[in-house]
Design a protein around this nucleic acid. Structure first.
Length: 459
DNA sequence: GCAGTCACG
DNA sequence: ACGTACGTGACTGCA
């Protein structure tokens, strides 16, 4: 199997040429002997580089075993109800046709495609004379944010928004997904272990890491993902706030660590701190803003970005960030230390030592440098969380070995297992244990478990 | 093949 | 005056 993989002239051999080039080595990759020789010679400088970065054990104890875990997961696959997807797709088709009819009637012309952003822009901003709110590189934007801003200005806009949403769901998740179902009734996606710059995995053909979850109509797609056998169960376990907990651990900020140690509602806590009121006085709006601030912190916050996200002024956003950093001084200090190290080394490191290079960290171009700072800081947090869930999956994989239950999906902070009912309680215990004790942090890692007969109805 | 859009964490 | 929240992949229209 490996030899076949290596000899496929359109895939891995080409990749090995590139690896050889990258390490200053050349070879004849058209034969098995040449490939083996190149693999052998390239192993020396790679091993040396790993040693120098103290990544030999991370490779051997995490990434190599993890590759096998991903392979198991791909081979297991997830059973998919194609009849349901077809029926749902047909229903969406009817609704889409009706929305199209109504929208064209309201705009009074059939001369512009509502599907084409360019033509829709011409229709809305030139023909109908609506005021644009946002630009793209090449013209006027018609994305959700832009359309929502002007939806009170013309009765067709809400219909176009729904049309957009439904065509997206139908196009990506009903008709197209069915084509991936193999004769065993399952979808077997490919997980890319080196698909991201932060250490997360990605998923292709199809991407099952972006199945709709945020809207009711979207969640109906999740009903199509079911256990592999009648009576079996899908169990999902997801980390609660893993990125913020990781940041608390890495920074050792006393305030944030205490909040997690005491099991606080973290967005409520942040709201209370930033808006300087007792937790009992935090309004839903304040909590929502605090949630946005917490996300912003993970992303390497900027006043401009936060102001855009919250729809507030730049000065107000600046004050929020200032107040946050006053209340969580360990976060500011940690961010400064990460940036300083990155400016010295040209890379940042995750909790297990994975590197992310940030070549523009010392750029004289302000925007380019700020971008590198955000990317570097975020990569430490996101990448360290990725390290945690990878270790959890390796551990869980060993636990599941003697059982029939199998991992079928990983979605960054979530693992889904397909299990027979008589293994359910053991599997739940294994998932919780392996995830919560994957890597020991100074604060607890917390998971939420749920199970059900499809990916939507989990409780 | 790129740009725009939108699905996810 | 202007501008960027982090990380992905799939689909569509259009050069």
């Amino acid at each position: 199997m490996l030899a076949q993989y290596l000899l496929d002239p359109d895939q891995k051999a080409w990749g090995l040429d590139r690896i050889g080039d990258a390490w200053g080595l050349a070879g004849d990759t058209s034969t098995a002997e040449g490939l083996a020789d190149l693999v052998y010679r390239v192993s020396y400088p790679i091993d040396a580089a790993l040693e120098e970065s103290h990544l030999t054990s991370t490779l051997n104890e995490m990434e190599i075993p993890f590759a096998a875990v991903l392979a198991d997961m791909e081979m297991a696959g997830i059973r998919t109800d194609t009849a349901y997807l077809r029926t749902f797709g047909a229903k969406l088709g009817i609704r889409i046709a009706e929305l199209e009819r109504q929208a064209y009637e309201l705009v009074g012309t059939h001369d512009y495609s509502l599907q084409s952003p360019k033509q829709l822009g011409t229709l809305l901003f030139d023909v109908l004379g609506l005021a644009p709110t946002k630009k793209t590189k090449t013209g006027l934007s018609t994305d959700v944010e832009s359309l929502e801003a002007i939806q009170k200005e013309h009765p067709a806009i809400p219909l176009i928004l729904e049309l957009r949403q439904l065509t997206k769901i139908k196009g990506t998740y009903t008709d197209s997904l069915v084509r991936y179902v193999t004769p065993d009734g399952k979808i077997h996606p490919t997980f890319l272990q080196t698909g991201t710059s932060t250490g997360r995995i990605s998923c292709i053909d199809p991407n099952l890491q972006n199945i709709p979850a945020r809207t009711e109509v979207g969640r109906e797609i999740r009903q199509a993902f079911i256990p592999s056998h009648d009576g079996w169960v899908l169990v999902s376990a997801d980390y609660s706030q893993i990125d913020l907990r990781m940041l608390a651990h890495l920074s050792a900020d006393a305030n944030l660590c205490n909040a997690f140690a005491q099991g606080e509602d973290i967005h409520l806590h942040t709201a209370s701190q930033v808006f300087d009121v007792p937790e009992s006085a935090v309004t839903p709006e304040m909590r929502k803003r605090a949630k946005t601030i917490n996300f912003g912190i993970i992303y390497g916050i900027s006043p401009y970005g936060l102001s855009r996200q919250l729809g507030i002024g730049g000065e107000e956003a600046r004050q929020y960030i200032e107040r946050y950093m006053e209340r969580f001084p360990g976060i500011r200090n940690y961010r400064d230390r990460v940036v300083e190290a990155a400016q010295r080394d040209g890379y940042v490191k995750t909790i297990l030592g994975h590197l992310r290079r940030v070549p523009h960290i010392n750029s004289r171009n302000n925007m380019e440098r700020q971008e590198a700072i955000r990317q570097g800081f975020n990569a430490v947090v996101q990448g360290s969380s990725a390290d945690v869930i990878k270790m959890a999956m390796i551990s869980l994989s060993k636990d599941l070995q003697p059982l029939k239950a199998r991992m079928v999906l990983q979605v960054h902070d979530e693992i889904v297992v397909d299990t027979p009912p008589d293994e359910l309680e053991r599997v739940r215990g294994m998932m919780q244990r392996s995830m919560e004790s994957a890597i020991h942090l100074s604060i607890p890692l917390v998971t939420h478990l749920s199970c059900g007969s499809n990916l939507r109805d989990l409780e």
